[in-house]
């Protein structure tokens, strides 16, 4: 079945892609066989991240950007990420509201996604979904998400070009400087640039970039774009900036390096996630976690010892032992 599914996705079946993404979201075993099949066909699409604080107009900008990209004939995948409620586990995903324009274009695929409580953070699911959309034949994949710098929603590690969206009047510039957003932006967008304060925000950000450039040698200096996404103003220029960054990545060889880093990180993250999942499952199902927590509460055990013991036991278990021995022999 995995083979059929993968084949269908490679042939461009939205429905098969949609189901595979659901399985990924559910961390359903069935997903992994499929992912193995499509993996050789991934890595082709260019990934653009759109991030910024709530109310910055990210969805509207994503909508306008997708339309702009379609002008050049490229196929677009959009992944719109919204937070899940920590209390109910449910989510309200409203980004499609701003993307109605795109609904009848068969070469655009939009997927809304809730952050849920993914092990290994949002980035795991997002980078998998990107692969699916890539295999589906999308040339550019736009990931839109609130916030950066937090483990849960940090998708910056997935994007080739990260666009940070700021708006005048929200105290955004200062906020972002604190949150370390300045460092991760490849392109800045001052959206709602028809509002008072836009020029000042633009100047602040530019000054900061210039200061950075003095401190550190960098091959790429993030351009600062202005847009009024609702009216489509400045969107073409934004796309040109993204294209320029892409060209820089290729010309400088950064693209290869950066992809390599991402793949390494991703592989480690997956191993980490899966190891943790298995260990946790065992601990939970055997009731040993409860027992250990009880001891921790009573101070009869400390978490440091628990960690070491769990690890030692895990490594000495039959399956792993062999591998471990082989490794040490070699």
């Amino acid at each position: 079945m995995a083979h059929d599914f993968a084949a269908q996705i490679l042939e461009g079946s939205n429905r098969a892609a949609a189901r595979l993404i659901s399985w990924l979201e559910d961390e359903d075993e069935r997903a992994y066989e499929c992912m193995k099949e499509i993996y050789p066909h991934t890595g082709r699409a260019f990934v653009v991240g759109i991030t910024g604080s709530p109310g910055a107009g990210k969805s509207t900008l994503t909508n306008a950007l997708a339309r702009e990209i379609r002008q050049s004939g490229l196929k677009v995948g959009i992944l719109a990420v919204d937070p899940s409620s920590p209390f109910t586990g449910g989510a309200l995903l409203g980004d499609r509201v701003r993307m109605s324009d795109l609904a009848d274009d068969p070469d655009i695929y939009i997927r809304s996604m809730a952050t849920r409580g993914f092990l290994g953070g949002m980035a795991k699911a997002a980078s998998d979904v990107v692969k699916v959309l890539d295999a589906l034949g999308k040339d550019v994949i736009v990931i839109e998400t609130v916030g950066v710098g937090q483990d849960e929603v940090d998708i910056v590690g997935v994007a080739d070009t990260t666009c940070v969206v700021l708006v005048p009047g929200l105290g955004d510039a200062i906020q972002s400087m604190k949150a370390g957003i300045m460092e991760i932006a490849d392109v800045f967008v001052i959206n709602k640039a028809d509002r008072p304060g836009a020029d000042m925000l633009c100047a602040e950000v530019s000054a900061r970039i210039e200061m950075d450039a003095h401190l550190r040698e960098r091959g790429w200096v993030a351009p600062v774009n202005k847009s009024v996404a609702v009216e489509g103003v400045g969107v073409h220029e934004l796309w040109l900036s993204i294209e320029a960054h892409r060209k820089y990545l290729f010309d400088s060889g950064r693209f290869y390096e950066s992809r390599r880093e991402k793949i390494a990180k991703e592989a480690l993250r997956m191993i980490h996630g899966e190891l943790f999942r298995v260990v946790r499952e065992q601990l939970e199902q055997s009731g040993r976690l409860d027992a250990a927590v009880e001891k921790l509460m009573n101070k009869k055990l400390d978490p440091y010892t628990l960690m070491r013991d769990t690890l030692t036991e895990w490594l000495s278990s039959s399956q792993c032992k062999r591998r471990h021995d082989e490794d040490t022999k070699g």
Binding site: G57, N63, G94, V230
Partner: peptide
Amino acid sequence: IYGEYRPKEFV
């Protein structure tokens, strides 16, 4: 000339 409005906010 003016473009079309899309609602921005959701519950």
